[in-house]
């Protein structure tokens, strides 16, 4: 596993050698701001917490994560550098992990730069900062899950547009599967336990309970397991779709 940091550093350097990193961070922050203040009405609720900020994350990540993840492998396949990378003495898992961690760090940096909102709610009121920390953590873990899916899809194609669209679609399925509308559709004809299982597979249920302050290890374990499984699938895809 000693090559994970080497791959990671190369990826990070690439983000910052091109405008990609800056463009991504600016768009991330702009969207977060617009959704939180205009659509979420952070200040209009007479409540000091970051709920109106966090509730948008599952939706915004729907295309922010594929935007980062689509290039992870598709670009290497397109330019042929995958042949260079995978004939170096680096294991597939090391390469997958290094790339994932770099993309995840971009998410983490962007998310960290929303700290002025945290300061603001603390200045204006007296929020439960424990819940806010949990919210940030949940958001970061969920971003990792979206990225792991995007990385897997990216390993299957050399076309970044296809990688973007398919990743967003797959993530959308996992987002929707916790949604009342979808669950109501299944409820009349599936046993309750199945409906519960479908809900438990999706992002939303786990994310919502954390940001509402219900801290349950299961929800964190869900995101970590989900990410690990998709990373493993990504490693399989890189190994088996070489040309």
């Amino acid at each position: 596993m000693k090559n994970i940091p080497v791959v990671y550093r190369r990826e990070m350097a690439s983000y910052f050698a091109t405008p990609l990193a800056y463009v991504f961070i600016i768009i991330f922050l702009t969207l977060m701001g617009i959704f939180t203040f205009y659509l979420g009405g952070l200040f209009g609720r007479g409540q000091s917490d970051l709920q109106p900020f966090f509730v948008w994350h599952p939706w915004l990540y729907l295309f922010l994560a594929p935007a980062l993840g689509m290039r992870l492998w598709a670009e290497e396949r397109k330019t042929g550098t995958i042949e260079l990378l995978m004939t170096l003495p680096v294991s597939t898992l090391e390469a997958v992990a290094g790339k994932f961690l770099a993309a995840w760090s971009m998410m983490a940096v962007s998310l960290a730069l929303t700290f002025p909102m945290w300061i603001t709610v603390n200045v204006l009121g007296d929020p439960d900062n424990g819940v806010i920390v949990a919210g940030y953590l949940a958001s970061l873990l969920m971003a990792g899950s979206y990225l792991a899916v995007s990385g897997f899809v990216s390993a299957l194609t050399r076309n970044q547009v296809i990688a973007f669209v398919v990743s967003a679609a797959v993530c959308f399925v996992f987002l929707l599967s916790g949604f009342p509308l979808v669950l109501d559709f299944f409820r009349p004809w599936l046993p309750a336990s199945m409906v519960k299982a479908i809900a438990a597979m999706g992002f939303l249920q786990h994310f919502d309970s954390i940001i509402k302050g219900v801290l349950n290890a299961v929800d964190f374990v869900y995101f970590i397991t989900f990410t690990a499984l998709w990373l493993y699938a990504g490693s399989w895809a890189v190994e088996n779709y070489r040309n």
Binding site: R10, A13, S14, A17, T18, T79, G80, E83, L84, T87
Partner: peptide, 13 residues
Amino acid sequence: GYLPEGAPLYPEM
């Protein structure tokens, strides 16, 4: 040591 066909490289590096 391997030079793949077309000598692919990371352009931004």
